[in-house]
Amino acid sequence: MNINSNKILKLIYPFGALIFAAYFINTVLFFYLPKTTVEYTNVNVPTINFTRYDMAKPFGLIKAKKPKKAPVKVVKKEEYQLLSNLILKAVYAKTNNEGWIIIQEKANSKTQMLEKGELFKAYKLIKVFKKYVIFEKNSKEYKLSMPGQKEEEKLKYEVITKKEEKTNDWKEKISIDGDTVKVTRKYLNSYVNDI
């Protein structure tokens, strides 16, 4: 084993010595050779900062132009449209138009709970009814109703009072249908008769 390793060392040794010799020669050469390059620099180019100065203006030879003012852009803030952007999801109404409501914004589906007197984007919740709520802004009132809610049902009823034969009393018939009220002619005539 020792004999073999000695043979290998004998074989490698001259090569190692040659590497070292070559490295040494080149190192000496490296110290002798210049380390920096020669680069062209244009010395004729002036390095003084150039400032443009108008001589005519200070002596009034040319009327100085007023600097134009850049037009100020007025960005109009869009007013929040309450009725078109909100959905009334739930109402918890108490007596005296008080209570809480849950509203949802159409744009981002965010829900928010409001109590009477609270503000939502400068709109104040002032009244809470069972099926709708009233907001106020700049002394204007805005009504927000529950979705799918029909118009208030029309009032419709009849009042009939028959004339008794014995007492010769009058017969009364009043029919109410929403805003219209019908009264029978006979009934009206009885008033005329009385006069």
Partner: peptide, 13 residues
């Protein structure tokens, strides 16, 4: 080995 370790850039300079 000489070529390997030759400082070529310095020769160019």
């Amino acid at each position: 080995c000489i070529f390997l370790f030759l400082p070529k850039e310095n020769i160019y300079y």
